[in-house]
Simulated scan of single mutants.
Amino acid sequence: MQLPVGEVAVNPAAEVAWYFPETREQYRVSGNLTIVDAASTDSAMQAARKRVWHNMSDPGRQQFAWPHPGLPRHLEDPTAWDCPAPGPKDPVLDTFCLVVLHVDEVEQLKLKSNERFLYRRQEAAAVPADEGAAAVTWVEEPINP
């Protein structure tokens, strides 16, 4: 899947769905995306980007050194595909972005029992003792399947 980074900047809303055939459950997770690229200034997100880069396989890292995905493949330069994989300790390539989904809602559908639940994230008011940090709670609501 090619993620249009420019489109995410305009509209970060995203949804991911998983279905588990053995339990016959479906989960739909929605929220907003953050793209963490080389220019991102959030140090925690940059640290996460480096951790993911470090934990990727060599072939996974190698793909980020290839020519731009989705463009016509120029066969006149076959060496473009033979570059060595960057090592896990090598600097993160600028072409590598970390995509983070900040989850606001989770919908669970249990097909065996015909039950459906919506879980919504709610941030409580800032607590003065936490110097502005807001507590997060999740509210569960049974809904019609």
Results as ranks from 00 to 15, higher is better:
1 M>D: 09
3 L>P: 03
4 P>I: 08
9 A>Y: 13
13 A>E: 09
14 A>M: 05
15 E>V: 12
16 V>M: 08
18 W>P: 03
19 Y>W: 10
20 F>N: 14
22 E>F: 15
23 T>Y: 09
25 E>V: 15
25 E>I: 13
26 Q>N: 06
27 Y>G: 00
28 R>I: 09
36 V>Y: 05
38 A>M: 10
42 D>F: 08
44 A>K: 14
44 A>G: 13
45 M>L: 14
52 V>L: 13
52 V>Y: 08
53 W>C: 00
54 H>W: 11
56 M>L: 15
57 S>L: 04
57 S>I: 03
69 P>G: 00
70 G>Y: 07
72 P>K: 02
81 W>M: 01
81 W>N: 00
81 W>P: 03
82 D>Q: 13
86 P>E: 02
91 P>S: 12
92 V>P: 01
92 V>A: 04
96 F>R: 03
96 F>P: 02
98 L>W: 09
105 E>L: 07
105 E>N: 11
109 L>P: 01
110 K>L: 14
110 K>C: 11
114 N>E: 12
118 L>H: 06
121 R>D: 06
121 R>P: 02
124 A>N: 10
125 A>H: 12
130 D>N: 13
131 E>M: 13
132 G>K: 06
133 A>W: 09
134 A>P: 07
135 A>S: 09
137 T>Y: 15
143 I>D: 04
144 N>E: 15
